[in-house]
């Protein structure tokens, strides 16, 4: 006891706790746990550059995706369409405040915060403006990982289109295209982000 191990020399699998000597990965390589098969670390190719570009695209598409009408129905000469934001407004008007808040969180707030978070982090890395405040910022960013549900909302759009197609005249609006592109860019921004690399750089810079 007493002698502490140099923790920079080792990595552990977060799924099964197996301990390994830290591999020196080059771009495109990944380290896989031999016991449970989990990917412990991955050095992604051009991570900062790609994540920066995708998150920038996502930020530009954000307003059209939220505000433009996604689809509309025509029945007996009447027409009505709705955007992503209209869904939330409609739920509030009908008294489903809890559902409105949760749909807002999962389909708008969390994806938006994640996009801006990824953009800010990659921006500081790209232009070498690292600050110690990035440590708590990036830590908070990780808490949102499992709560973004844009892909589920997309499937929801497809299902409700099928449902409406049967007995009304359905029209698709520009909002759908904007939403699909927004979904793609925010997913790609999240996939391209090399969290391991970012933590390592931040540690070398600010933690002794």
């Amino acid at each position: 006891m007493g002698t502490s191990i140099d923790t920079k020399q080792f990595i552990a699998c977060e799924q099964c706790d197996a301990l390994y000597e830290k591999p020196d990965l080059i771009q495109g390589q990944r380290a896989k746990c031999v016991r449970c098969g989990n990917i412990m670390a991955e050095r992604k190719v051009d991570s900062i550059e790609r994540s920066f570009n995708w998150s920038l695209a996502g930020i530009l598409l954000l307003l059209p995706a939220i505000l433009l009408p996604i689809m509309g129905v025509t029945l007996a000469g009447q027409y009505h369409h709705a955007s992503l934001l209209d869904c939330i407004v409609a739920l509030i008007e009908r008294g489903f405040l809890m559902i409105a808040i949760l749909v807002f969180l999962f389909a708008i707030a969390v994806p938006v915060v994640r996009l801006f978070g990824a953009f800010y982090i990659t921006y500081t890395f790209k232009f070498n403006k690292l600050k110690p405040s990035l440590l708590p910022f990036f830590k908070a960013f990780h808490h949102l990982d499992s709560w973004a549900m844009l892909n589920v909302f997309m499937l929801g759009i497809v299902v409700s289109m099928y449902k409406l197609l049967d007995d009304t005249e359905l029209s698709v609006n520009m909002g759908l295209l904007a939403f699909i592109l927004w979904l793609i860019s925010s997913t790609m921004a999240a996939i391209a982000l090399d969290q391991d690399y970012i933590w390592q750089r931040l540690e070398d810079e600010f933690v002794n």
Binding site: H80, A82, C87, I99, V103, G156, L164
Partner: peptide
């Protein structure tokens, strides 16, 4: 839940 939210918002023909 998302499907219901969408239908509530879209199908609003009085």
């Amino acid at each position: 839940v998302f499907v219901v939210a969408l239908l509530v918002a879209v199908v609003e023909l009085g």
